[in-house]
Amino acid sequence: MKRRKFFGKAATLLISSGLLAGMWKKARAKTPEGYDPSLHYYGMGIQIDKCIGCGSCVEACKNENSVPREPFYFRTWVERYTIGKDGGAVVQNIDARLAVSRDIISEKEIIRSFFVPKLCNQCDNPPCVQVCPVGATFMTEDGVILVDSERCIGCRYCIQACPYGARYIHPDTMTADKCTFCYHRLTREMLPACVEVCPTQARIFGDIRSKASPLARFKRMNKLHVLKPSLNTEPKVSYSELDGEVR
């Protein structure tokens, strides 16, 4: 009798824990019918010497993805580096509202200057995905890091974990938000908005595994570097002509 009771209880426990486990779901991206994510693995190349700092990419991104207009919510932004003869570097956001005039180096003292477009690096070893307590931030099969805004609890741990400052809390949804490589466009065979509008083709987008594509050519023709390699985040955004001052 005792034994039967025990087995009865054990069965109840098993079933109930099974039910609980059944509620455990992985977050997934919504893709249109006919799109097969297993056929792709996306990456981006950025040619620093081609960037003229026009800011079209930032504007296009804000429009395409309804990013708040304030000067502190960016999925992509452009930094202006001015390096003085004494080695000192001044960095500014090209958004005029953020450019602080007091930091400017006088023209004669400048030794080199360039623009660096920044965005989520879509890391292959993403710290944000690692730390998200509820699995709301995840990597798609085609290599893009997304946030499921229906699941995100707004704890902001991912923002702390991102070494690139690529994330923010969207003030309307109160969930984490970031560059998605315009995933909704990719799955419809379109380029990310920033790539599409860049007048100098400083941004090159494509499949990392493709053998003949603008991205493959970019990788063949340039010496490449990624941001903060020592953190082992394995970015899928790589830069050519990247200066040592850029962090």
Partner: peptide, 19 residues
């Protein structure tokens, strides 16, 4: 940001997350 979703941390824990 979404306190009402806090139960997700019990239902859908991401085991690689310290939190």
């Amino acid at each position: 940001g979404h306190p009402l979703r806090s139960y997700e941390i019990f239902l859908n824990p991401n085991f690689s997350s310290a939190m």
